[in-house]
Amino acid sequence: MTERAAEREPLGRVVRPVVPLAVADFADGMAFGALAVSIGLGVLAPVVMSLLVFSGSAQYGAIAVLGHDGSLWAVVGTAAALNARYLLMGTTIAPALTGSPWSRVGRALLITDGSWAVAHRGGGRYDMRVLTVAGLLCLCGWTAGTALGAVLGGAIGDPARFGLDAAYPVFFLGLLRSQLTSGRAWSLAAVGVAAVAGLAPFTPPGIPVLLAGAAGAVAGAVLGARR
């Protein structure tokens, strides 16, 4: 599907697959807000952080480091490692990012795991309208959830009891389902699983996913060369 074709799609059809992700981001944002307040960040700082950083993994990582009295550099290093996969995602999506530099920057800022995955149309094509809508809805959900969680604080209790940590992987599995249409795709997915499972115990968080993507690229080249 080209971007022009996607723009003719009704907005409701674009929004529908994004809603569960935004709802999950809202709930996860509440948990983050409550956690941030519990380590003494106050109410405003976590909300501004969610608005500007917009990355659950990096923000949770930063909170973990801050909670152990880590330095500013340790916080930044952790966040950079956790978000390094955005380099790969940004590269995959770059050809579809047309328009002025400001337009490209604006859309690139909305790249998250979820918006990147839901905007993927297969064959290396991306739907920029879906990326924009998904990114904006998730940004709203994540930031609003953070604000509510920060205000409610400890009244939320243990967020793990909602089972959200089981819902997120299923979202990505659902998107992966549509890509697993050949033995080659299954092989590449298996390479990704093996790479993360093999590297996660030994490398900083975030790096295994980046390397999983790189391993998939190499494996794809090898598979292609044999055919």
Partner: peptide
């Protein structure tokens, strides 16, 4: 071509990471 191959691996890797 390399990035095309990275997609399924990246998604599957995200699942394991989560």
């Amino acid at each position: 071509a390399a990035l095309l191959n990275a997609g399924p691996a990246l998604l599957a890797g995200l699942v394991v990471m989560l």
